[in-house]
């Protein structure tokens, strides 16, 4: 990338930031043996949180962004990492790891230097107001048949932010209950 292209790049909004992972990583639909009723699998966005793979329905994903400046919001709920500016819109950035008991306390994130290289902000549509969640890495889009989702096993943990479990090719996808995860 040339110096000038780089200059323009930080000035303008790049479409690849929001759709990139969708296009590159969307796996082909598996050759599911034709069953009596062919079910159209749902698309989910899969991402990594503390080494585990989580997923949310593609329909609620607004876009995916690199981590930029995050403004601390005093006296906000503890799972609010801060405020981010999405092309003029001021949206809260949430940590879901504490809620999922993957971490003791939310990270302090103020700039991109505070997160790992793969970290992304997943912007979610929500009737209560759109919000971002911080994820360690975006894995891609996965198609899961709704009828084959399992409910979360009782592991003696209070994980009510988990809506269910999906499996594909031996991989485990934990489906996030957004309402709970952001509360």
């Amino acid at each position: 990338m040339s110096r000038f292209a780089e200059l323009l790049d930080c000035f303008f909004y790049r479409p690849d930031e929001e759709v990139g992972p969708f296009l590159e990583l969307a796996p082909e639909v598996e050759g599911v043996p034709e069953s009596v009723v062919a079910e159209v699998p749902e698309e989910f966005l899969a991402f990594e949180l503390a080494g585990e793979t989580y997923a949310v329905p593609i329909a609620v994903v607004r876009e995916i962004q690199k981590v930029g400046d995050v403004t601390e919001v005093p006296r906000a709920a503890p799972n609010v990492i801060g405020l981010i500016n999405v092309r003029g819109e001021m949206l809260p950035l949430y940590d879901v790891k504490v809620r999922l008991e993957l971490a003791g306390q939310p990270p302090v994130v103020r700039t991109k230097k505070d997160v790992g290289r793969g970290a992304r902000v997943v912007l979610l549509r929500d009737p209560e107001g759109d919000a971002g969640i911080l994820v360690d890495r975006v894995q891609g889009v996965v198609k899961l048949a709704l009828s084959r989702l399992e409910s979360a096993p009782n592991l003696g943990l209070e994980r009510d932010a988990v809506a269910g479990i999906g499996r594909k090719d031996g991989r485990l996808f934990i489906l996030l209950d957004l309402e709970q995860a952001l509360s």
Binding site: G68, D69, T71, V73, P74, R75, A76, V80, L83, I84, N85, G88, E89, M90, L91, P92, D126, E128, G129, D130, A131, L182
Partner: peptide, 27 residues
């Protein structure tokens, strides 16, 4: 001044946010 998203509306003492030249959000 831009209003905060619905989820943060109840933050006391903060009426909204604005963006500065470097696009950082400021309360």
């Amino acid at each position: 001044t831009k209003p905060l998203s619905g989820r943060l509306r109840a933050i006391p003492g903060v009426s909204g946010a604005t963006e500065l030249g470097d696009r950082r959000a400021v309360l």
